[in-house]
């Protein structure tokens, strides 16, 4: 083995754009993978010195501890407005938000829709795990029908609680969105596809073509009360049918939905 683990044989290492801080996420949580993919793309594009992230409220509230780029923290749901302010003043920088489902699709719905509608030249990374993870597993706007959470302990009742909704398909209808896609990071194949989507999104930002929006359907094994691998299987079986994988809008044209 010693003869293999030599520098010249290196084929994969954690990008140095991830800091040395230990990720605050639960074991098996997709957040870490998504952070890393974004930083890998930033590294490959050589844009660290031009990249500014906006961190949400929620599990990724400390995203700036892990990604080695300049960051602004935003109030819950306000990241697209904060990113708008940054981008309007630094139009040549790369600005992205990183938001969860409660942040983006509940409390920040107005900011999300209007930033998308204006076609701000930013990139929105939307992590949908169907639950409020940070606050302890409460029902999110994306919680599936019948799914149990700490505020839908008998399962989400669409009649009384309203049904889950697909904000990604919704914002794809807006003329300001240029690239809208849904990805996952639970297996090697999806990870590689997701990385290509991130690259595409940031290239679009470089060309100032409008907003690029990537939803990552992800797991919350703690909130769902499963092992990491069981949660990934459950996600495929239950989340993916309602939140189907793939591109929704490419080059400003709807391709699905």
């Amino acid at each position: 083995m010693k003869e293999i683990t030599r520098e010249e044989n290196l084929v994969y290492r954690r990008t140095p754009l991830m800091t040395d801080a230990t990720l605050s996420y639960c074991p098996g949580c997709g957040h870490g993978t998504i952070h890393r993919l974004i930083m890998e793309v930033v590294e490959e594009m050589g844009i660290q010195s031009e990249t500014i992230g906006v961190a949400p409220v929620g599990c990724a509230v400390l995203a700036y501890d892990f990604m080695d780029v300049d960051f602004s923290q935003a109030a819950h749901g306000r990241a697209p407005a904060v990113a708008t302010g940054i981008k309007r003043l630094w139009p040549d920088k790369f600005v992205f938000t990183y938001q969860g489902d409660g942040d983006l699709a509940a409390i920040g719905t107005a900011e999300t829709i209007h930033a998308c509608n204006r076609g701000e030249n930013i990139t929105i990374f939307f992590v949908n795990n169907g639950i409020y993870g940070m606050t302890g597993g409460q029902m999110a706007p994306t919680t599936l029908e019948g799914m149990k959470s700490s505020t839908s302990p008998y399962g989400r009742n669409n009649e009384t609680m309203g049904p889950p909704y697909k904000i990604t398909e919704l914002i794809a209808q807006l003329s300001g969105t240029y690239y809208v896609t849904r990805q996952a990071v639970h297996k090697p194949g999806p990870v590689r596809k997701a990385k290509k989507a991130i690259r595409k999104a940031l290239e679009i930002q470089k060309e100032k073509k409008g907003i690029s929006f990537i939803e990552f359907v992800s797991n919350c094994n703690s909130g769902w009360k499963m092992t990491p691998n069981d949660s990934n299987i459950w996600m495929e079986e239950h989340m993916f049918p309602f939140y189907p994988m793939g591109d929704i809008k490419v080059d400003g044209k709807l391709v699905k939905g």
């Binding site: 293999i4 044989n9 290196l10 994969y12 954690r14 990008t15 996420y25 870490g32 993978t33 990870v191």
Partner: peptide, 13 residues
């Protein structure tokens, strides 16, 4: 690539 914590380094010959 699937490791959420990025703890794995890979070598190949």
């Amino acid at each position: 690539v699937v490791c959420p914590d990025g703890v794995i380094t890979v070598y190949r010959v």
